[in-house]
Simulated assay, not measured.
Amino acid sequence: MNEVEKILAELEKKNYSPIYYLYGEEPFFIDVISDYIERNVLSDDEKAFNQQIVYGKDITIDALIHYAREYPMMAERRVIIVKEAKELNRTIANLEPYVKNPSPTTLLVICYKYGKIDGKTKLAKELNKYVSLESKKLYESDTLKWITKYLKDNNYTITQVASQLLVSFLGIDLGRIANELNKLKIILPKGTEITPSHIEENIGISKDFNVFELQNAIGKKEFPKAMQIIKYFNENQKDNAMPMITENLYQYFKKLFIYSSSIGKADAELAREMGINPFFLKDYKVAAMNYPLKKISFCMEVIKQTDLKSKGVESGSISYYDLLKELIVKIIF
């Protein structure tokens, strides 16, 4: 059981803490806990007088403490949720007296996304005496595992290719991925194994023309297929932004470099270092035969140059399609 599940389990048992300090670079897990508290701690009738959602940019520390010190009205407790708490950074140290002696009838939830309070401060040390969660960004391999578990918990499964397709297109943004998976859960009956066809039909990510298939075509040096894919990208630029393509290709060659540099390692260890599912090692084995280390380094440099050109650096008037075509030719030949 991970930290998020432990916190949720205690909340379900109604074992409440007076303070919840939720911080870090991954907003999804912060939202999971704060949303649960917002929905479940108080009844609908109790919420009217005892639950407040405030925002860091709109409230002072003095006002926040005042709200937290108020007695509940016709309820056992109050809930104060501070969203965008990072906006309070300049004055948040003034919250220390309250944290040292919090109201036993208030749940104060501090949502400090995309950062954290300096751990050396007295406030941070006091906060860590209560329920705290550092919500870290997941690596790609962890995101793939998360997708599998998220669906399993809701009585669905997903193929490895479909899972990779989602991550290749949406990145490691758990909020976006969860939104798309939730759409599928509405459409598909429980027990369904989600495939690339389901994703194409219901989310709009082509199962044949996507950055994951472009990587495979490049790895196998299948130039005609790679050209077909970038032509599709050119016709659907809104859904295939250049930064997404270059980032995925760069990470692909970075993983290929690790694969080619790691001689004699067991598959499980190698997959872990690359941050991929062992299922896909066979594809990297094929690519490694086509791309020696020197060529891999060259490809990574070319991808970085293409990314810069796409952002207007020494690009002249080159079009989206011509930029991608130039990139594919340099990589494959």
Rank of each mutant, 00 (worst) to 15 (best):
N2V: 07
V4Y: 08
N15A: 08
Y16H: 12
P18L: 12
Y20D: 09
E25V: 01
V32S: 05
I33V: 14
D35F: 10
Q52P: 02
I53P: 08
G56T: 00
K57Q: 14
I61A: 06
D62Q: 12
A63V: 11
I65S: 01
M74V: 12
A75W: 05
E76T: 09
R77F: 03
R78H: 04
V79R: 02
E84S: 14
E84K: 10
E84Q: 14
R90N: 13
T91D: 14
Y98R: 10
V99W: 04
V99P: 07
K100D: 13
T105Y: 07
K113V: 13
G119F: 05
K120W: 03
K120V: 01
A124E: 10
A124Y: 07
L127N: 06
K129S: 13
V131N: 13
L133E: 08
S135F: 09
K137Y: 05
T143P: 09
K149N: 14
N154C: 05
Y156K: 10
Y156E: 13
I158S: 07
Q160E: 13
V161R: 06
V161I: 11
V161W: 05
S163I: 08
L165E: 02
L170F: 15
R176T: 14
R176F: 10
I177M: 01
I177Y: 01
A178K: 04
L181N: 10
K183E: 02
L184A: 02
K185S: 08
L188A: 12
L188P: 06
T192R: 06
E193D: 03
T195F: 04
N202E: 06
G204Y: 05
S206N: 15
F209R: 02
N210W: 00
V211Y: 07
I218N: 11
I218G: 13
K220P: 03
A226C: 07
A226P: 02
F233L: 03
M242C: 02
M242T: 10
M244G: 12
T246W: 05
E247L: 08
Y252E: 05
K254D: 08
I258W: 06
K265E: 14
A266W: 00
E273Q: 15
M274I: 13
L281A: 03
V286R: 09
A287T: 05
C299M: 03
V302I: 04
K304T: 01
Q305V: 03
D307E: 13
L324K: 07
